[in-house]
Simulated scan of single mutants.
Amino acid sequence: MKFVLIGVLTTLLTITGCGEKRSPLESALFNQEGDRIGTVTLIEQSGGVEVKVKAEGLEAGPHGIHVHEFPKCEGPDFKSAGNHFNPTQKKHGLMNQKGAHIGDLPNIDAEAGGMADAKLMLAEATLKDGQTSLLRKEGTSLVIHSGPDDGMSQPSGDSGDRVACAEITLNSEKSKASDPTELNKKQEE
């Protein structure tokens, strides 16, 4: 009986994909020059996905921050990340009465020294399978902008240039684990 129970549990874990590490999921955050400036940690919660952002080297003040539709952070402009993640086809802005993009987040604040440490919530998102999954298809990305998001302007809150980006994929921890400046240091030697 014990062996049957173990076999059933193993089969269920295999079928449901629980072998993939989806939460917590950590990604490296890069600036426009390709330097690693921080981390983004995503944690599945009962009410959505908690987003923890730790960054340095930002301009002091508020910054718009959004999940974008593609897991591509090609600098210096990060346009490769595409538009905001919006699988439910809503309008932009947390203050929009018709609803917001799934990827819309409150602004983060960088201190005078350029450090930002924020904990935010994506209420309708998930790391599990489904339409609002941040990991659907190839994944998504998290982008920090140069200025604050006004919460209403279409299509993206008038938050300025894209200044930092983190790819959100199942392999993000493996592919971006090392400090990108290490390669530069080796080439200089």
Rank of each mutant, 00 (worst) to 15 (best):
I43L: 14
E44K: 14
E44F: 07
E44W: 07
Q45A: 15
Q45W: 04
Q45I: 03
S46I: 12
V49F: 08
V49N: 07
V49G: 08
K54D: 13
K54G: 09
K54I: 12
E59H: 05
A60H: 02
G61H: 05
P62V: 02
P62Y: 04
P62L: 12
P62T: 03
H63Q: 07
H63C: 06
H66D: 07
H66F: 03
V67C: 04
V67H: 02
P71F: 00
K72S: 13
C73I: 04
E74A: 11
G75K: 09
P76G: 09
D77P: 00
F78Q: 04
K79T: 10
S80H: 06
G82Q: 01
N83I: 01
N83A: 12
H84P: 06
H84F: 05
F85C: 05
K90D: 06
K91E: 12
H92F: 06
L94M: 10
L94E: 04
K98L: 12
K98D: 15
H101N: 14
I102L: 15
G103A: 09
L105E: 05
N107T: 08
N107Q: 07
I108H: 07
E111S: 15
A112N: 12
A112H: 09
G114S: 11
G114C: 12
A116W: 02
A118K: 06
L120G: 05
L120W: 09
M121E: 08
L122P: 03
A123L: 03
A123N: 06
A125G: 07
A125K: 01
L127D: 00
K128C: 00
D129Y: 01
D129M: 03
G130V: 03
T132G: 00
R136I: 03
R136S: 12
R136P: 01
K137S: 06
E138Q: 11
G139Y: 00
S141R: 01
S141W: 00
S141G: 07
L142H: 06
V143G: 01
I144Q: 04
I144V: 14
I144E: 04
S146Q: 13
G147Q: 11
P148Y: 02
P148E: 13
D149L: 08
G151T: 08
G151A: 07
Q154P: 08
P155M: 06
P155N: 09
D158Q: 14
G160W: 10
D161T: 11
R162T: 06
R162I: 04
V163E: 08
V163N: 07
A164N: 10
A164V: 11
A164Q: 11
A164K: 11
C165S: 11
A166M: 11
A166V: 10
I168K: 01
T169N: 02
T169W: 00
L170F: 08
N171P: 00
E173H: 07
K174M: 11
S175M: 13
K176S: 15
A177L: 12
A177S: 15
A177W: 10
P180G: 13
P180E: 10
T181D: 14
T181S: 15
L183Q: 14
L183H: 12
N184A: 15
K186F: 15
K186Q: 15
